[in-house]
Design a protein around this nucleic acid. Structure first.
Lengths: 177, 177
DNA sequence: TCTACCATGTAATCTGTTACATGATTGC
DNA sequence: GCAATCATGTAACAGATTACATGGTAGA
């Protein structure tokens, strides 16, 4: 459950509320993860119950229920985070990409379809690379670890694009394989 | 649910049983996916009920229940597969790597721990690259699409290693950031 | 004989996604 | 006044992992 540790990690920088945590995970982790409120809020709730985090401040809205809940990490949360940080749990890189899954079977379809599909993927990846680069510029000063992960994201992205172009060429060159 | 399409795709090559499908997905898809029986067998069952695949042959063991169920794709399965293959469902590459998640927060731990953690990851990645290369040699003749995906796996893998080495160097060089 | 691998399956659990519901605030 | 974005939350569902249970076969 690394979402919980991501939250504990982010709370080391400063106290945050759920909405901010989501934004941070999506933007500042090299744009390699997505996350939804369905994960954030239930986790914040259970982590508070366990005592890893605590409510620092609740800004109520004028009329109506509570609004903007600021969370802070507790000493217990810091302890748990430290243990996790020092652990050596490692898995292989897993790349679950629906496009690649289809790509493997392009031999069972027709060539034009395959090329159109590749062009579409190229467009998406190029757009993503552009936004990654913009992001890197803005976040370069955020500490070397964050920057390095953003750089890895960029490298994977541009490597993927190069590969797509090469794949496209190979499919056009050799009709039969 | 791309597992189902992966199964339909593999059954285009030849009839297979669950165990083989698992092996194929793990070894021949560029070693980028893992899968477990908890996904394979229930899916085979429901796909058979839906009529996408059919039992071709059941080799019974001498005494005891059925053994080795060979599945074949049906015309309906081929239809479904074709529709999926021509679709353009695309998502961003998502890289959920527990190591990278920890890496981002290495600034909150100590340097030696970070370096040891990186060295460990390097060892794992290098071992994986070696097995990928062995695999590529054996599978080069399996058709260009399969080969290309295997090559992408190799490129990601060696890119990751290069990045790990650079990250290690940067962490050693600059004490403060 | 024992180990490794072949082979099928289920149940419990965990994780992640989508869709919905609600309402405040900010800027044009 | 309206759109975009800030903000919190839940319910239903989909997908993946782990652990368990069972037994066969091949080779050292």
């Amino acid at each position: 459950m690394s979402v919980r540790y991501a939250i504990l990690g982010l709370l080391h920088y400063r106290n945050m509320h759920g909405y901010e945590i989501k934004r941070h995970i999506e933007n500042h982790f090299g744009s390699m993860w997505t996350i939804n409120y369905g994960q954030i809020y239930p986790n914040l709730k259970s982590m508070e119950e366990e005592g890893c985090i605590t409510l620092d401040n609740v800004t109520p809205s004028e009329r109506g229920g509570p609004h903007k809940k600021l969370y802070a990490i507790t000493p217990m949360g810091q302890e748990k985070f430290k243990t996790w940080l020092e652990s050596e749990e490692n898995t292989r890189i897993s790349l679950r990409d629906p496009f690649l899954m289809r790509f493997i079977f392009f031999g069972f379809g027709n060539q034009e379809q395959a090329l159109a599909n590749i062009d579409n993927q190229l467009k998406i990846q190029e757009k993503q690379l552009e936004s990654r680069r913009q992001h890197l510029k803005r976040w370069q000063a955020r500490g070397k670890y964050v920057r390095l992960v953003a750089e890895l994201g960029e490298e994977f992205n541009s490597g993927y694009i190069k590969w797509l172009k090469r794949a496209r060429q190979e499919i056009m060159d050799i009709q039969d394989d």
